[in-house]
Each structure stands twice: as C-alpha cells, then as structure tokens.
Design a protein around this nucleic acid. Structure first.
Lengths: 228, 228
DNA sequence: CCATAGTAAAAAATCGATTTTTCATATCAT
DNA sequence: ATGATATGAAAAATCGATTTTTTACTATGG
C-alpha cells in the first residue's frame, strides 16, 4: 500500500479530503477491509477524527460500514457502474438543460477559462492528478447555474462514484482523444445555447466514458483476458 | 426540549436512527445549534458514538457541520423546499415509469398490502407516527422495482428532507383528504400499468404535498399571519 | 462613547486507555 | 474424521480525561 506516512498534523476536513481522494483514486483495493490502526499511522491522526471521517464517507457511499466489523471499500460491480452511468446521464441531462437557460455572461467566461485550463493540463505526463482536478472543475462549472443545489449534490456524488471505476480502468487513448474533442464541442454548443444538441452530446460523452470505465470491472477484465 | 432521558444503552445504529427520526420530526428547532453534552445525556450514550452519528447525519444532509463550531440543524428555507419538491417530482417520475415496467405479481401484492395498512393507519389519533411509517413504506414500495439503487437512494434522501418541512407545517384536512384519495388512485393506475396517468398523478401528489409543506417556512407563516 | 485587546468560561475536538466484540485456532466429544 | 465448543489473540467500539478552539465578558485606551 501507499508509503506516505504523514507526520504533520491534519485538520478533520483535510483528513476527510485525503481519504476521499485516496478512495476515488483506488489506492485501497476494492472489497478490502480497512485496518483502522494502519490508517491512523498512514495519515498521522488519532482515532476519533479518523473514525468520524470514515463515518462521513460511509454515509456518502464511498465506504461500507458493517455491523461491528469496521469499514470496507465497496466492490466494483458491473451492474452498479451501469446504474451510476445511466443515472448520471439522466441527471446531468436535466441539469444541463437548466444551466443553458440560466447561465449568464460571467458563467460563459468561466466556462471558457475552465476549458482552457483543461486543455493545458491534458497530455502532460506526471500531471494526471492536476488533469483530474481540471476535468472535474470543467464539468462542475458547466452545470453550475442549473439552479438546483440538490441536483448538483447528487451529480457530484455520482461523479465521484463513477470516477472510482474510471480511474481503475485501463487507459484507452482512442476514446480519450474523442472525449477531449467533446469537451470543446460542449463549450461551443453551450455558448450557442443549443439545448437539444448540447444535451445529446453530454449524454454521448457520458456513454463513452462509461465504455472506458467498464474496464475496471472484474467481469469485463476476465472476459477480455479470455479473448486475448 | 424532549424529556426522554434514555437510561438503557443503545447501539450505534439505534442512536443514528433515533437522531434521524428526531431531526425529521422537528424535535430540534430549525437553525438551532446542537449542544453535544445535552445530547449525550438525552440519548444516554458516550461522546464517540454520538459524534459519529452526527457526522453521518451531516454527510446525509440532515445537519450542518461548521468548521470547529459543532453541528447545527439546517434552517427551513422556502427556496430549498421548492428545490427539494421539484427534484422529488422529477426523480420519482422517472422511478415510477421504470417501476411500472418492471414490477411483477409479488410487487402488486405488496402494493395492495401497503395501501391497506396505510388506510387502516389513517385517521387514528395518537397513531401519527405509525401512519408516517406506513406512508413512507407505501411510497417506497411503489417505486421499489425501478431497478436503480442509486435513484432510490436519492429519492429516499429527498423524501427525508421534504418530511422535515411537511411535519413542521400546520395540518390541512382538506388537502390531506385529497392526498389520501390519490394514494388509492395511484394503486389502481399502477396495477393497470398506465404509465402516463400514474406518473401525472404522482407528480400532482407531490405538488399537493408541497403546498402543505410550504406552511413550515418562516416567510409563508408570516404572510399568512399578516393576512389573518 | 466606541472600538479594541485581553481574559476567563464554555464548548468542541482530540487523545490514550479500557471494554466489548469478532475471528482464528485448537480441543474435545461424538 | 467431523462438527461443535472453548480459548486466546486481534480488531473495533466506547469511554473519560486532556488539549485546543471559540465565545462572551471586561477592562483599557483612543
């Protein structure tokens, strides 16, 4: 497992953020049980703040809490990924429609800026984590003005779940290039306020990401290996 | 505040359930800061399990966690209720469509049973909490076979949020009677697999509940008092 | 008189130790 | 030999005490 033994003290929310990042990034094996004592050392924190962070993550859906048996990283299940991707498509479709109607000039400016940062971050090796950040921020900004805080909350939650699969999946440069192109097209259609086209493209974008993310599932990997 | 000082020990999940129930039931004033020491006594538990439950509830959205300033009951805001109700309508609409396509014989049987229990529970004074349970179970059962665990999860979360408003609102017997009638009509349309009609009715049902729940918001109450 | 810095009280967060529960291994009876 | 039960080790959950942070109050200077 990771070698990062943080000696410096962290605040509670920093601990939560670090754990969340490591979970989405797949730094703990799916299905694995978390050893609390080991985590305590890894993050250099006491028991109480650690357990509180784990409880929050369990409520968020990034951990499973078993009766008196500690915390477990959820398994990566093909059926659940399909559910997550399907719902993402529908919810982000809703949000985009509203965002295109509500977004103002300031939003357009921010969208261009976010897209620019995303493009710059792409293709730079060793900067993967930075690209992930820019990518998340781009998609977040796109839907931001939709007007529903709860819808955005659920979309974010699904996005985090989805990323757990996507980051685990083997890279696919062909699809990745297509996805990158779509980001630019999304910006154009958003600026043009072309609701049906933008929505169709966003749904296609998620479908394509879904295709990549499937590579993270046990079932699919086995199937691929059997073929090869 | 409540007089219930539980002497018997509770498990962690019982404590979570009790706190959640009390929050949805409005037993803590909206906007109020929770005094941890008082809660410790009220539920008869130690600090650690209590804080863990509060953290979970904050992640769920039934509490707000401020930096190093403890936990606060979220205020009841008109705009947020509108958001919650609007999203409920859309998400439950989606789920119902799928549920009507997927639900089998066993589901139909269960739906009739749930409706029967709901009817029996109605109008019995002093059994309000029991009616609330049956009501929740009825709506849950209606959407159950929709096939998306995440959609059901979000719907449940929104339902809990919505109920915090509805239970706080003054009773309205006229509307309540109409809502009760709609439950029966929903069962009929569901059994007939009439997707468009069932969906329209469910959305109307939520719209009507929304009207009731609005009575919980400060702004609306003031407006009513000014008129009277 | 108002603003600001200092101080004491209160509350929240964290820690280390203790208790309880689970898990794995070995023993015994059938 | 197999299955059930007991026992010890390990892990999780809980507790009480300590430390840190916030808040309310007071005094002091402008």
């Amino acid at each position: 497992m990771g070698a990062e033994v943080a000696t410096a003290n962290m605040t509670a929310s920093q601990l939560y953020a670090a754990l969340k990042r490591d979970l989405i990034d797949g730094r703990f094996a799916a299905g694995q049980k978390l050893a609390i004592t080991a985590l305590r050392q890894r993050y250099g924190v006491g028991l109480s703040p650690l357990r509180e962070a784990l409880n929050r993550l369990a409520a968020y859906g990034l951990l499973e809490q078993e009766n008196q048996r500690g915390f477990r990283v959820p398994a990566l299940k093909r059926a659940e990924l399909d559910d997550i991707a399907d719902l993402r498509r529908r919810l982000e479709g809703l949000a985009l429609t509203q965002a295109l109607q509500a977004g103002g000039d300031e939003w357009e400016a921010g969208l261009l800026a976010a897209f620019h940062r995303l493009k710059r971050a792409d293709g730079t090796p060793g900067q993967l984590e930075h690209w992930e950040q820019m990518h998340l921020q781009f998609h977040r900004h796109l839907l931001e003005p939709c007007g529903s805080a709860w819808l955005l909350r659920f979309i974010e939650q699904l996005h985090d779940q989805f990323d757990r699969y996507r980051r685990m999946a083997p890279a696919n440069d062909t699809i990745r290039e297509r996805l990158n192109v779509q980001h630019g097209q999304l910006v154009e259609l958003a600026m043009a306020r072309d609701v049906p086209a933008a929505r169709a493209l966003l749904e296609e974008h998620i479908r394509l990401s879904h295709e990549v993310a499937r590579g993270a599932c046990q079932e699919d990997r086995t199937r691929v290996e059997e073929r090869g």
